[in-house]
Simulated scan of single mutants.
Amino acid sequence: MIRQPTHRMQGFTLVELMIALLLTGMVAMLVFGAFRIATGSWERVVSQQERVHERYLVQTFVRRLLEQAQPLRLRDIDARLSVAMHGDREQLIFVTELPTRNGVAEFYWCQLRVKETETQLKQLIMTTRPYTEGEIIDWLAPFEPTGEGLNGEEIPFTEPEERVLLEGVAELEFEYLYYDQTDQPEWRREWVEESVLPYLIRFQVLPQDEDGLAGEADTAFWPELLVSPTEYRYGGKTLL
């Protein structure tokens, strides 16, 4: 009798199975690590783009505020007559146009400055309140009520509103272009008790460094803005 050959079923040994599982786990860890790195890089890129876009919107908004500065004349509490703008190197107060809830633009007092917070992070702040024709201003406290108006009229007071425009701002730097009697341009660091608006306003924002101090000017953070009030847009001056 001829016997038929028998075939044994070949299988994995326990050692081979453990090696296969180990290799599979290592491959999965490498793939997951690469995925986490790619995801983290993408999130950082998206976050950076969002910050750049936010700064661009703020820059556009601030430019519009300065362009719409109004050449109004008013008296202060010492009866001195001047244009409705008072500024130095670190802050600026002026009257501008802002849209209201009903869609109509109205005149508002506006102040741009840097405010320190309880944390180390500083903020670019805009403070506003409605402008009332005939009011008398205290330039040292422009958002506190004086209650005084021309001819002894009582001016109603509206509580100012404060808005955070941008965080991580260490300092502001304002400069104002003036033309003297000989028509020569001159940059000033103050605009106080003037009869007209400056021809140009130079506005720079300095970011905070790791120690919370003012870092160097960084055009990637905030490019230098040169803004001309609307009334000078076609005035024929040579703007620097």
Rank of each mutant, 00 (worst) to 15 (best):
residue 118 E to F: 13
residue 239 L to Q: 04
residue 82 S to R: 06
residue 156 P to G: 02
residue 110 C to K: 00
residue 1 M to F: 09
residue 37 I to E: 07
residue 145 P to F: 04
residue 87 G to K: 03
residue 72 L to S: 03
residue 136 I to M: 02
residue 134 G to P: 02
residue 131 Y to Q: 03
residue 171 E to I: 08
residue 99 P to F: 03
residue 154 E to P: 09
residue 148 E to T: 11
residue 16 E to N: 04
residue 73 R to W: 14
residue 53 H to Q: 14
residue 194 E to D: 06
residue 83 V to K: 05
residue 38 A to R: 08
residue 15 V to I: 13
residue 19 I to W: 09
residue 74 L to W: 00
residue 201 I to H: 01
residue 236 G to C: 01
residue 63 R to D: 13
residue 185 P to H: 00
residue 5 P to G: 04
residue 174 F to N: 04
residue 32 F to K: 06
residue 235 G to S: 10
residue 76 D to S: 04
residue 71 P to V: 08
residue 60 T to P: 07
residue 160 P to I: 00
residue 28 A to M: 06
residue 25 G to Q: 00
residue 24 T to Y: 06
residue 78 D to K: 12
residue 223 P to Q: 01
residue 34 A to H: 10
residue 74 L to G: 05
residue 228 S to I: 15
residue 207 P to G: 00
residue 149 G to I: 03
residue 36 R to Q: 13
residue 173 E to L: 10
residue 192 V to R: 13
residue 42 W to G: 10
residue 108 Y to H: 11
residue 114 V to S: 02
residue 45 V to C: 09
residue 135 E to H: 04
residue 214 A to K: 01
residue 230 T to D: 15
residue 182 T to R: 15
residue 174 F to I: 05
residue 153 E to V: 14
residue 173 E to K: 11
residue 125 I to Y: 00
residue 24 T to C: 10
residue 23 L to K: 05
residue 48 Q to A: 15
residue 219 T to F: 11
residue 126 M to I: 05
residue 53 H to K: 13
residue 221 F to G: 03
residue 127 T to M: 06
residue 198 P to K: 01
residue 129 R to V: 06
residue 152 G to A: 04
residue 29 M to V: 08
residue 235 G to W: 07
residue 106 E to M: 10
residue 104 V to S: 12
residue 224 E to R: 11
residue 29 M to D: 04
residue 51 R to N: 12
residue 79 A to I: 09
